[in-house]
């Protein structure tokens, strides 16, 4: 079956003010999202994951590349057609307070969306739909009359999710949807997202810096670094047996809530910091920090290649090891 969403060689370039330089926030990203699938995108700040999310929902127009929704090219569409794309592909933001209008009650927030998209009929129909949406996200009907400041972060995020679902989207792009929430509230929202996906047959793009959350919810995982996809594959393979040294470093950097494991672990932190995206290193952009760096890495940017079935990575060393496993003593 054709994917619901597909991006090819997506590029987003921003001018850097006053310097004449260009910042390639997204530097050639390709992937697809299957129907009913959850694709996780993980990476650290500046890796381009949020920009990718904004391009997917067409809040911004890509500089180059192509975005297809259900087989249709939506890269440059405008006007009425763009509005329809905005209905079919919804975005849920990280900060639930900032994403809601403080002057509107929950009912008004949801009603507004229904009116704008002319959904759920007349006033009475919309009121019924508001109640239905609240039920879907696990909020009592009394929440309809609350303002954002009268709710907790978790409750606001439920409203944010309800607003996204109000327009019956096919794809929901979730940009760090639980990162601003307390730990004890995160799990509830994660379980809610999982349930809604099953009930409504949604497809998710789940963007997060938190590898544990991404591993928990994704069918496949994309790892981004400095605007590029460095690894892409089935969730278990990427999280538990990563091919790219950056993914491995990322995974080892995350402290595990298990003191037995942590005590036994020799921590060798990844050296250096993420380079300036306006001035990326030559060759593989990860090479200045990479523990496996070789000469070729400093000059040749590795292609994202399928090194194992369904499992891609952009790494010269990983590629050689998998092609000639006996040639390398590991």
């Amino acid at each position: 079956m054709a994917p619901i969403l597909r991006v090819e060689d997506l590029v987003k370039v921003y001018p850097v003010r006053g310097t004449g330089q260009e910042l390639r926030a997204v530097a050639g990203v390709s992937f697809s999202l299957g129907r009913g699938e959850t694709l996780g995108i993980v990476g650290e700040s500046g890796c381009g994951k949020s920009t990718t999310g904004r391009l997917l929902v067409r809040l911004e127009e890509p500089t180059e590349g192509r975005i297809e929704l259900d087989g249709e090219d939506i890269t440059r569409i405008r006007g009425r057609a763009l509005r329809e794309v905005h209905r079919r592909v919804q975005l849920v933001f990280q900060d639930p307070f900032a994403a809601l209008n403080p002057r509107l009650t929950v009912a008004q927030t949801l009603d507004e969306v229904l009116r704008v998209y002319d959904l759920a009929g007349d006033k009475a129909g919309r009121r019924r739909r508001v109640q239905e949406l609240l039920g879907m996200v696990g909020l009592r009907s009394g929440f309809a009359d609350r303002y954002p400041h009268q709710m907790s972060g978790g409750q606001c995020q439920r409203v944010g999710i309800a607003r996204a679902l109000a327009v019956e989207p096919q794809v929901v792009v979730l940009d760090e949807p639980v990162s601003a929430l307390d730990v004890s509230v995160q799990s509830e929202v994660m379980n809610l997202l999982t349930r809604l996906r099953e009930e409504l047959g949604l497809s998710y793009v789940f963007i997060s810096h938190d590898l544990g959350m991404v591993r928990h919810i994704s069918d496949r995982i994309v790892v981004m670094y400095l605007g590029r996809v460095v690894e892409l594959g089935p969730w278990r393979a990427v999280s538990d047996d990563p091919l790219h040294p950056y993914t491995r470093a990322l995974q080892e950097a995350v402290p595990v809530a298990d003191p037995g494991i942590e005590a036994a672990r020799e921590i060798e932190p990844l050296r250096g910091e993420v380079p300036d995206p306006a001035d990326p290193p030559a060759g593989c952009v990860f090479h200045p920090r990479c523990p496996l760096v070789e000469d070729v890495c400093t000059t040749v940017d590795p292609e994202l290649a399928e090194l194992l079935p369904e499992h891609q990575a952009a790494c010269h060393v990983a590629a050689r090891r998998l092609q000639h496993p006996s040639a390398v003593g590991t």
Partner: peptide
């Protein structure tokens, strides 16, 4: 409430 980063099977997260 915390999902493991690797190894373990996936299960619904404990809710509070």
């Amino acid at each position: 409430a915390i999902p493991p980063v690797r190894g373990a099977e996936r299960a619904p997260l404990r809710q509070i």
